[in-house]
Amino acid sequence: MDVRLDIEPIRNGMIVKVCASRVDAAAALAFRDAFRQATAGTDGKRVILDMEEVTFLDSSGLGTLVAMRKSLGQDRQLELTTLSPLVDKVMRLTAMDKVFAIHPNRDAAIQTQAQ
């Protein structure tokens, strides 16, 4: 199951758009591999995952997000933007919304950087 990631460099990091509607058990490994390739050799402080296209996230997908967060290390940030209602619910129910900075949309995420 392929997961395509579109990368856009920004000051201090990159925006990674997840081009998949489901981040679930079937997609988790491919998602993690694609993210590893996208971030390999980069050192920008911020990695912003644009989740606009993701309508479904299960616990496997959430575990993958946490693993990706840890893979960046504590000196870098993994931020999330444009969560669908279900993805937002999963983040809040599991309290994992405390682990990621969450932005309402892409513009807000970029403006946060500008401040």
Binding site: S59, S60, G63, V66, L93, T94, A95, M96
Partner: peptide, 20 residues
């Protein structure tokens, strides 16, 4: 688990299923 009480390296990567 409350992530505020977890060390960074111990953040859970699973075990969310039955809670959900």
């Amino acid at each position: 688990r409350d992530p505020d009480t977890c060390d960074f390296d111990d953040l859970p990567e699973g075990g969310f299923g039955w809670g959900l």
